[in-house]
Each structure stands twice: as structure tokens, then as C-alpha cells.
Design a protein around this nucleic acid. Sequence first.
DNA 1: TTCGTTTGGTGTTTCAGAGAACATAACACC
DNA 2: GGTGTTATGTTCTCTGAAACACCAAACGAA
Lengths: 404, 404
Amino acid sequence: MMPSPRQRADPTAPPSELDPSRRNNLALITSLVHHHRVLSRAQLTKRTGLNRSTVGTLIGQLVALGLVYETAPTGEAQVGRPSPEVRPSPSIAALAVYPEIDAVTIGLVNLGGIVQKKIRFATERIPSAREAVNIAAAVIEGMRTELEHSYRITGIGVAVPGLVNPDDGTVRHAPHLGWRDEPVARMLGEATGYACQAANDASLAAEAELIFGAGAGRDNLVYLNGGASGVGGGIISNGMLLRGASGYAGELGHTFVRTSGEQCHCGATGCLETEVSQGRLFELLGLSGGDTPQLEQALRASSSPAVAEEIARQLGFLAIALRNAVNTFNPEVIILDGFLGVLYAIAPATLDDLLLSQAMDGPAAQVKVHPAALGSNLMMIGAAELGFARFLADPTGFGAALTA
Amino acid sequence: MMPSPRQRADPTAPPSELDPSRRNNLALITSLVHHHRVLSRAQLTKRTGLNRSTVGTLIGQLVALGLVYETAPTGEAQVGRPSPEVRPSPSIAALAVYPEIDAVTIGLVNLGGIVQKKIRFATERIPSAREAVNIAAAVIEGMRTELEHSYRITGIGVAVPGLVNPDDGTVRHAPHLGWRDEPVARMLGEATGYACQAANDASLAAEAELIFGAGAGRDNLVYLNGGASGVGGGIISNGMLLRGASGYAGELGHTFVRTSGEQCHCGATGCLETEVSQGRLFELLGLSGGDTPQLEQALRASSSPAVAEEIARQLGFLAIALRNAVNTFNPEVIILDGFLGVLYAIAPATLDDLLLSQAMDGPAAQVKVHPAALGSNLMMIGAAELGFARFLADPTGFGAALTA
DNA sequence: TTCGTTTGGTGTTTCAGAGAACATAACACC
DNA sequence: GGTGTTATGTTCTCTGAAACACCAAACGAA
């Protein structure tokens, strides 16, 4: 529980602090507008439960700070005076950075989760942390004048495929990138001058899908992504991302699914990500590699029994991991992304049936498996959410800093 | 996110409602006093971050309502004016009910988690929901005059070994009791006239250990209990109990730990609770049954290699389930209760080593396995917490109702 | 004994949000 | 095409909660 000190307890703090109740309500409205992209004043009044007049003043304050703007009521003709629509300011934006084994992608994302710009910088070999930071910093430097001219940047979010401590933005271990104990957030923050935070990629993807994607309106969601480098997971419970003691929570790729299974790079055996991999599928298909749509096409085109068998095998292991997830989290939605989404798309009934028969009745009856909805923008939106986090928690403090 | 309406949105609501900020702060102080049993005014000021004068008024209000009382400062001699100590009123109490296969236990628990009274009513056969409710109601009826004379009862909490929907207190399925879709909370509420809620037993135990036991001061905890009827789990993440969409979350007893394992009553195979069971241990020891201390004594006394082998086997499966839990939750503490606590007590190093080698480095380094700290009072304290919940959320509303 | 330190108590001040009364802009019905 | 109804924005007042400043009290230390 949080206390509610009316004014700053520490008189040495910057004098901009205002009543926490006010700050909360401003943050609440800003977040709602961010999440919904458009919301009438009347809708905001209903959602917040605040008085009409109060919402009016709050929005006025946000408009004055240039964080949101109001437009004439467009329609949805109904009885009564039309309510003006509130939208997030297009000048507020966050930067997103996503280092992978063959590229570093940098994005510029508006409030409302709109990807304004996405630059994929392909690398010849797996980038080191320093290289990834340098690439991102260079690209951001290239956009600098545009950024400073047309945008107010709230921060940078870095999505890292690996174990990240979100408190200080240090990458503890990213096996596929070969990174260990790299203070990525600090490095990129120093290189660019923007506030920077880092977190696990799948966790951020889960948040993005919760806000803008297949989990919109839900409170309990399990996200699972299958990529070239393994399986990552993110869990939203009770509307909040599961962090754990150090932010390492959600590693569903290492769920145990098979006795005397293969050795995983994590040290254990029988992990989901060693038994279920897109590499095997490509191999059986006679392909050296490819992206997700190519895999789906090839799988659908194939009539090889070996391929069919492998699909069934992998679905079986996936079902075991999902069964555990359903029993432990009782989610409303499971979102499958990457090649896991392909596996599901090819045989949805198979997985649904396995899940229904293996998971416990109560939780199993409520869960629905979905493919990811945000496609290739997912990771940019998720990482940007990290860049927005501090702004959304205290929009005025930021508004003041940004306008100053 | 919660709005902060200053006054009641619904004018038809009782006029006792006060400013939510005030209510929050009163609730915060009441909870702190409840959790710590004793806390000086100065400590409360520090913990809440509120102004001294504000804390003073708040405590005054709580004292006037008879919810807490102040005593002269006892000591801890230090410079400055001594601060009076605040304690929870011993007249505030909740009732706890715990139906098991061979008994129904009813408890009276004070604020501060102090078990005042515990009555175990042994049953000849597994009680039906109606029977359990009748037993509890009868025992409570027997205490009625005492309760009405000396206590102010905030509510009844029922801990049920099975899937419970905490929203309406309906037992969806309690396999070992043979209950299905029983509205236990409503039944007991109607039978006694007290507000009644129900939840999963292991979840409540996890909360109790979090507040008063081995997890005190922590925010991320996994609780696992092994009993005669199976393995139950409760998870605290970020200081909050994991509920899931319908409150069914936390069923770690059905974690997958073995390929082609035995069929579980839940429908799946290879569940933790079918592979790891105290029944097998008793069998190998040549005993027909017994309680936890008896089991530990017998296991320590036994020199049978079959027993040793079975212990190793069960520890192996337990380690797999814990490995999953560590990877997914990144907890600070794992609390093992019941015969799982015995298994750990007998070979702590074995389990610690297995966990350290199988779980991912980051999370594994931080986790510590602990036996449960609250012993036989655990379930009473946990269930009572449920009976306190509404009171702690709004002490004044309750104070008014209780004094009226 | 005196001084510094920490705390409780009291009166004042600030400020956020509710509420009521009024203004406004749409639909609905005749 | 007027008139009533409904839903909303706007303005002003009022209430209440918490901070703050100041003083008093109670302790240890010099």
C-alpha cells in the first residue's frame, strides 16, 4: 500500500510536486487516453468515476501542458450534448530499441502505441552490447534534429531477449546474444542523454498485447513467443506484469516438458525451448531458414508424414507447458507468437483439445488461445511502453520538464 | 488503476463514506498495526510517509472507534521524546473455518494473527459441504454469547482444499472432499449471520506466511504444502496473491514433472501430486498413516534403502516443480509445508543443489527454501485473514457498523 | 543542570474534488 | 419546425484532508 502525503515529505525535492491525489488522477487520465487513443470527455468521466467538473479541470491541465488535445465531437450521434474527444499529443513519443542476433531495430513510437518510424540496422555478426548501444546511439543521433524539433521524447526502452533486471536495466544473461552482466540501460542512457530502461523482450511484448493487442480489456494473460533463438514468455496477472524479486519472472521457455529430454543451454534438461524449436521444422522441411510466414506456408504445403509427426510432437510438448501455465495462472487468454503461433494456426483444434483435457477443469474452461495481434510492431510498442512508463506515472512532472 | 473520487459517486449510499484518501490512510495504518502487532507512532509516521500531525489525528480516530489502542512507551531508550506504542484492539477478531477429510476446524483469531481459540471437530467420514457448514455454524453458535460479549467479529474466512472462486466464495471442485459447485460462503453466511468468504487453503497459507511467517518482509514467495490429500500451492508476487481470472491460480500440485507418469485425478498425467505423495512413504515405512512429525521421525529412523530411494525420487520430482516455479516467478523464498517440509528437512542440501543446477542462474541465485514457520496455526491465521479483509480495506466503515 | 534531539499537540493554510445551478447542443416527438 | 428531453460542459461554492509552523513535552548526553 502507498501512503498519500499531501505534499513533499522531503523539502529538498524539486518544488514541482503536487498533491498525490491530483497526480494520480492526471496519470490515470493520461494512461487511459494513451491506451484507447481516443476517448470522449464523457467516457473519461465514466471510467475514472470522477466528477464532470473535476475531469474538466484535469483535462484542461493536460491540454495546457500539451500532453493531450481536444477535438470537436465527431459523431456517434446520440441524445444530449456531444462530448469533445481527447487524444494524446502526437509530439509525445518514446524510442524503442531491440537488439537481435542479426540486427538492431530502433523505433519511434507515439502515445497511443503508434509506430512512427522503424529502422532495422542489419549486422553481419551477433552484436556485442557495446556495438548494439553504439548502433542505437548513432541512429538516434541521426534523428536528433527531428526529435528535438518535432517531438518530446519521454525515454528509451530496450527490449532484450534474455534475463534483465529492470530496476537498473542490466542484462544479466542473454544467451543468444552472448551478453552477460551488461549495464545496457546505463550505457545507452549515457550515449544518448535520454532516460533509458531495459527489460525482457517477451515481458514487454506481453504488456503491448495487453494494452493494444489480443489481450485488450483483459487482466490475466500469458504470452509465449517462439523465435529462432528460443521461447520467451511474459505473464500479466491481475493487470500487472509479473516481475519477481529481480524482474526475472516469466521464463516459460524453460518449463519442464519431458523426462530425459535434451540438455538445455540453461543447464537443465527437458525444457520447452529445447523440445519445441523452429529449427527442427525447417530442417525437416529441407529449408535452411526463413521467417514466420515462410514457415507457415511451407508447413501447410508439406505432405511429409515426418513433418506432420514433428508438428504433433511439438504441439504435445507445447500443450504440457500451457497446461502448467493454465493451472498456475488461470489466465483468460494465452497469446502465441512467432512459430508457436504458426503451430497453433496449423492445428488449433489439436492444441485446444490437448489443453482442455490436461488442464484443470475450472481454469481450462475459461482460457482462450489467440495468435498475437500486433505483428511486426509488437516489440517496438512494448519497448516504447517502457520509455513511456515514467511519463505515464507522473505526466505533469514530465510535462514541466519537457516544456522547460 | 483506481480513480480517487473525493466523495461518494452514488448519493444513495450510506452517508458514512468519507474521503477516499482518508480511508486509504486509515486502512494503511490499521493494516500496518495488524501486521506488526506493535508499532510506535514514530514508526507509523516513517512507514506511511505522512506528517506527524496527520498520523496523530488518524490514530486518534482509530482509537475513538476502538480499533487500536495506545500504551505508554515501554523503552528502547533513545534520545528524544519517547513515542507511544500502538496495538490492535484485542476485541476485534475474525473466525476461521477449515474443513478437511477427517475434521472441521474452527478458530477465533485476533488482529495481529493471534489464534485465540481453536476447536477441531473430528468427523467419522468425509463431511459434505452442508455437514461442514452445519458443524461450523453449531460451534460458532456455541461461542455466540462469548463472541457477542467480548468480541467484534469482522467476518468468517473458510479455507478449502480445492478450487474456489473467491469472488462469491463458491467451491468449484474440492476433489478430496468430493465437493462440487458448493456455495459454501453463502451457506455459512446465512447459517451464522456473519459475512463469510472462502478461498483456496494454500493461497491463504501463503498469505499468512507472507505476513507473519517465513516470508515476512518479502514480496515474492511460493508456498507449497504437501498433505494427505495432495499438494497445494499459493503464490505471492509483488506483494499480492496471484488470483488469476477466477481465483483459481496457484495450482502447483498439478505441475508436470514426469513423462508417461501416472494418471492424476485431474485428468492429466505426470502431475507433481501423483508422483510425490506421503502415502507412498508411509507404505514403504510399513505405517498405515500418521501426522507430519511422525513421518519425519519414521523417515529419520529408517535405514531401508527402498525408503532412501523413494526419498531421492520424490526430491527429484519436487526439484523439477520448484525449478519451474523459480524460473516463472523469481521468488525470494520458497516455503515448503507438510510432508514436503519433511522431505526438505531430511535432505536440504540435496534439494538445494538440484534447484541450483536446474533453475536459471539469475533467479536461482536469489531463492531460499524454507520450512513453514507458523505450524499448526497456519491455516487458522490464513483463513482469518480472509475474514479481516473487508475490515482492513475500510476500518471506519466497519468500526461504525461494529459499534452500532 | 542545561542543551540538543525527538516526538506529540494545536491552529492555520492550501488545495483537490464534489455538488449545485446554469448553459449548451444534440435527439425525439408532435 | 417548435418544444421537451437528455446528456454534457462550465462556473462557483463548499467541504474536508493533509501539510506546515510553532510550541510543549520528554528523554539522553554533556
